[in-house]
Amino acid sequence: MSRLFRDVDGGPVCPGGSVVCIGAFDGLHPGHRALVRQAVARARDFGVAPVALSFEPLPREFFGADLPPPRLMLPRARAEGLLALGASTVGLLRFDAAMAAMSAEDFVREVLVGRLGAREVWVGPGFRFGHRRGGDLALLQDMGRTLGFGAGEIAPLLHEGERVSSTAIRQALRAGDFAHAARLLGRPYSISGRVVHGRQLGRTLGYPTANLRFGGKVPALRGIYATWVHGVGNAPRASVSSFGTRPTVDGVEPLLEAHLFDFDGDLYGRRIEVEFVARLRDEEKFPDLDSLVVQMDRDAAQARALLTRPPLARPLMSADDVAGGPSHTETP
């Protein structure tokens, strides 16, 4: 049975013990997936629960609330992806002032040992945690010798000499280089969510859209894109999508709006996945709605021309196998 927990305090989450991997896991790129799979494999060896541990909001969002960094993935999709990779328990710990003030030593004792009964803890390269980033792999290994758990680190994952990281993926997306982003991710970049009601302005303009909210997070993309929509029928649907604040109609909240070509149906409440193929242009403010529609016609024609060959249909939040292994571990 899978389980999601949010709190530092409380009774044991894994009374039979666990192997824990810790990270931001934003985007679930191959390095993240290798880390999770390492924890899952080691948990199988021990006969205990595999746990993926992260934070929500991410620490960089908490400390940079005035200018939060872009997010690749929303919390629900991150949790679903971690479960799909084999974690039986996912922790998205509330990162607040109390968490920020918790020492690394207290985090080890109260969370890793007290709540999770960790037998091993796995982290990524350069991992730091606790108040003022005072904890690292060496501290985990030192405390583990006393408290009865091992700790290890996954080696950096390289693609054609470049380290795979969420930062590098964000940079590729901002540059509109979706091919490079896909190579780093190990899959095309996409955003999934449940279709919500919008203002229905697109329908009056001849471009009805399926709308996905981004949960108040700052997206890594902004502009107009050629996209494929998965989850509507048996095959991906060609589409043109806008991701931004819709300045012509005085929008505020970032919204992903996908117009599916040659489709007439009700998608409200359906969970879909929007796969990004090419960036068409920046978001801009038009003097009136007529000018906006003229540009939308151009965008749609350009997207249709780009989307001539559909990708393979795939399930939402598919978990791709990835090669990867540990750098080193220390067991008490």
Rank of each mutant, 00 (worst) to 15 (best):
A65K: 10
G47H: 06
R115N: 11
M102N: 01
P57K: 08
G91M: 04
D96W: 00
A41L: 14
A100T: 05
L92C: 02
L58W: 00
A65M: 01
L116D: 05
A101S: 14
R78C: 07
A104F: 12
A98S: 14
R42M: 13
R76W: 06
E80R: 13
P75Q: 08
F55C: 00
P69F: 08
A79R: 11
G64D: 14
A49C: 15
F107S: 07
R78I: 02
G47Y: 03
D106C: 04
V51S: 08
F63P: 02
V48Y: 00
E80A: 15
G114P: 01
F55T: 03
V113G: 01
M102L: 15
G91E: 10
L112S: 11
P70A: 08
L116I: 07
A77S: 14
A101G: 05
L58Y: 14
P75Y: 10
T89S: 10
L116T: 07
G86M: 10
A77K: 01
A100H: 13
E80H: 11
G114V: 07
F55Y: 15
F46R: 13
L83M: 10
M102H: 05
A52Q: 05
L67R: 14
A52R: 06
L82E: 06
A49E: 15
A104V: 07
A84Q: 05
G81P: 03
P57G: 04
E56R: 08
L72G: 01
L72R: 02
P75R: 09
M73Y: 03
A65T: 00
E61F: 03
L58Q: 10
L85A: 02
R71L: 05
F46E: 09
F55N: 03
V51H: 05
T89H: 15
L112P: 02
F95I: 03
R60I: 12
P57E: 05
A87N: 04
R76A: 12
A52I: 07
A104Q: 11
D66S: 15
A104T: 13
L116W: 02
A77R: 10
V111Q: 09
P70W: 11
D96E: 04
P70E: 12
D66L: 04
V108I: 15
L72C: 07
G64A: 14
R71S: 08
A79T: 14
P68V: 05
G64N: 15
P50W: 08
E110Q: 14
L112Q: 09
A41C: 06
A65D: 05
R115T: 09
G114T: 02
T89F: 11
A43H: 04
F46W: 14
V111M: 06
F62V: 01
V90F: 06
M99E: 08
G81F: 04
P50Y: 09
L82I: 14
A49V: 15
E61C: 03
A52H: 09
P59L: 06
D66H: 12
G47K: 05
R94P: 00
R76K: 11
V113T: 12
V48E: 08
V108Y: 04
M73E: 11
A79H: 02
